[in-house]
Amino acid sequence: MRRLENAFWFAFAVPTLGIVLVLFFAPFLYSALGSFQSKSGQLTLDNYALVARLYTKDVLYTVGIATFSLAIVLFIGILLCGYLRVYGNKLVEFLFKIPLFVPFVVVGHAMRVFLAPHGILNSMVAQIGLINLDNPPSLAYSWLGISLALAWKNMAMAVLLILGAFRSVHETYLEAARNFGAGAIRQTLDVLLPMSASSLAVASVLMFTSMLASFSIPLMIGGGKGAQMTMIDVYYRITYQGDYGAANALGVVSYLLASGAAIYYLRTVTRK
């Protein structure tokens, strides 16, 4: 009877684990191994030499975009959540949840038409005479466009995480600060922010890695020329050149960049 029961649970665990092992961990290891192999299967470091030669700039570009985008998200997120925590505003809180459920591809396309040289944003700014549409500045197809799109999409997650952390700060601390005459900004920067620093660090790591790994947004609003984000390089390397060795080497670089998040995740498990 006991054995039969164990078999029952096992029967469900096997396919569940199996799919994740075969379709995630096996390809993961395979890509790491493949990065050290030449096309004929010999062990080599050539792929990494190629990546260092061709893609160092792109890796820096990717890290730069993720950093800049994270800075925007944190700056707006912290001030906004401070305001929401101190005064409360159900409508604004709801509005900032919307980007969470707008898929990345839709964000990519929407930002493409919104930020294009003759897109809605430029038309509106031109109406009040700030720019000249004969020679319009273009945010789309540039690092700034990618950063803004990533920031827009990640803002929802940031608000959820930061506001959650701010809400867990007890009201008495804020009251004490108010008694000393602190306004909303002082309460945010001097009380809420230091008291939720660790949750904020975690949120930042998660958002940073998801931005580094972003694919569909740079695919849609990145420029065709110049530096690309690493995931685009990986994709082009495979689809246009069929060069899995270099693509995998670049993939391994991206795993290393993401290992901050991996370490954080590992600690969550070991803590439980």
Partner: peptide, 20 residues
């Protein structure tokens, strides 16, 4: 095992999964 996939970039992994 059920957590790490969330930490790593999907694209290079899925590209190799596609080969499989």
């Amino acid at each position: 095992l059920f957590l790490l996939p969330q930490a790593f970039p999907q694209l290079p992994v899925f590209a190799n999964a596609a080969v499989l």
